[in-house]
Design a protein around this nucleic acid. Structure first.
Lengths: 292, 292
DNA sequence: TTTTTGTCTTTTATCGACAATAGACAGAAT
DNA sequence: ATTCTGTCTATTGTCGATAAAAGACAAAAA
């Protein structure tokens, strides 16, 4: 296996889903644009759709022959990219205990454990190192610095600096900037979730990321926006593996977001700072509680 | 060639330099600690020293036989690590013109041009991407974002936030913290250079990095300290390839540093902020001028 | 004339292999 | 009782090879 064909498999699955709704498929370039892949991959998908009897394909005619069944899809495990697989596997080790700060990280061992080549592990570790959780000793091993309270405090310190500045910049966006419309949409989802909090509180995690990323983007600074990746990954896995009091926590955060959004709309600098500080403070406390 | 032996060559050269001053060498572990390499490499060095007739080596006896001559050293090009070679070669392309923003970066082409394997180029690009100058399109090429004035402004915006905070933290370091002694040493070098500015102004670049890194470290925040890498690399290559008015610029910066250092010593928050802002402002202007 | 398809080339992602380097352990020397 | 050396093993850094995916270009269709 020189390369996984997960791009093909993932796009294939999305294409089968498309088949559930239409009787025929558009041109190859159009389909490629819709699925976000190249024509080479589109043609591989069409070939397979024909092979499994879902589609009659001859040049421009692409006619759906039958409704897709679950067995037509590739299993979801096969559609993940290698780096997603490594990341999950690695974060589980770090966050779900069993990994002490100061521990050595062995590339070969990690590779064998996940069942992949060492090159992929190395590249993952290099990319991952910017999150500040691991550090390289040249010509030697990586050291795990650990998901400690120091880490959380350093992370949130920078986050607060960046977000306060971004929020202030948000207030100066011109009235017709698309961010304002996105803010409306985000606010609406907040109300939806709050209206059915019992059932929908798990949707908060994704919404939280969407909202804060929007705010950070207002800074128009690549370093600030890129730093949001660090925050996002930490909170993502934090929400995933620490569910104590999740409903109450999320409900509170939703309310804080709404106050924060209202402040942004008011464009009042002092009000924005207050609402932003208030929310960041409780986000930090939540994160710290989950560590100790 | 599976791996360069530049660690060996570089340590060998440093060991030969050591030979110029002593008549015998210490034990293997001690020598390893002094050179920062493992015993395996130390033994490879001792073996070669014996082969070229510089040393009589038998167990614990390591007696220098003759004074080293220039021909005993490995050429300096061979002692650089691969990533240093790639970095220089790549930065030259970006900063010394000929590289337009939006340009595609081809891994294979870069590898062939430098005469190395693709894996090393990929790993370099991944590491380098955190500097915000390039960006990856998954399953496709890298895009050069370019050393533009937007880049410089975004960089300096974050730098100013971080350095102001670090400088404020510096004032709160306890009296016996080693940073204060390092600050004394740095200040002394400032006076030395200023006393012979005509000859020594090129030494400023290294001193600048040493000083600002010391300040950033006071933040005790890994993200702030790590970000200094970005600043350091940009200014490093900037100083190297843009020498217009270098003497005057450096003299001015030295004076600003001295004021900044005095302010840190005074521990007066307002004074520190003023001196820091003043210096960062002229650093930003210098950087911007070199771009347009 | 513009878009689509057929065909071909180029580039990326991943693997396994191997030399350089680090590091472990027991016996020898102080 | 430490510290050093001899020897051996484990791990990293780099390479070339190869399948997956992207993308170029001309002929064909609308």
């Amino acid at each position: 296996m020189a390369k996984q064909n997960n791009v093909f498999k993932d796009a294939f699955n999305r294409c089968v889903k498309l088949l559930e709704q239409t009787a025929s498929l558009p041109s190859e370039p159009e389909l490629g644009a819709a699925l976000g892949v190249s024509r080479t991959t589109v043609r591989a998908i069409l070939t397979r759709l024909e092979d499994v009897g879902l589609l009659a394909w001859e040049k421009r005619r692409k006619i759906v022959l039958r409704k897709p069944v679950p067995a037509d899809y590739f299993p979801t495990e096969e559609t993940d990219s290698l780096s997603e697989i490594i990341e999950r596997s690695f974060m589980r080790r770090i966050l779900a205990g069993g990994a002490q700060p100061g521990m050595q990280i062995n590339e070969l061992e990690l590779a064998r454990e996940i069942g992949i080549g060492t090159t992929s592990v190395r590249e993952f570790l290099i990319r991952f190192s910017r999150f500040g959780l691991i550090e390289k000793r040249p010509n030697s091993h990586w050291v795990l610095k650990g998901f400690t309270s120091e880490f959380a405090l350093e992370l949130t310190e920078v986050r607060e600096m960046f977000e306060l500045r971004s929020a202030a910049a948000f207030a100066h966006l011109p009235e017709d900037h698309p961010a304002w419309r996105e803010l409306d949409a985000i606010e609406a989802v907040h109300h939806e979730i709050l209206a059915d909090i019992e059932a929908r509180y798990p949707d908060f995690s994704e919404l939280d990321e969407r909202f804060h990323l929007l705010v950070h983007r207002a800074s128009k600074n690549r370093f600030i926006v890129d730093f949001y990746d660090v925050i996002a990954i930490v909170f993502h896995y934090h929400y995933q593996w620490n569910k104590t009091n999740a409903r109450a926590r999320n409900a509170r955060a939703l309310e804080e977001h709404l106050a924060y959004i209202a402040a942004l709309r008011s464009r009042d600098a002092a009000g924005i700072e207050t609402a932003c500080r208030q929310h960041l403070k409780s986000a930090r406390e939540t994160l710290l509680q989950s560590i100790n």
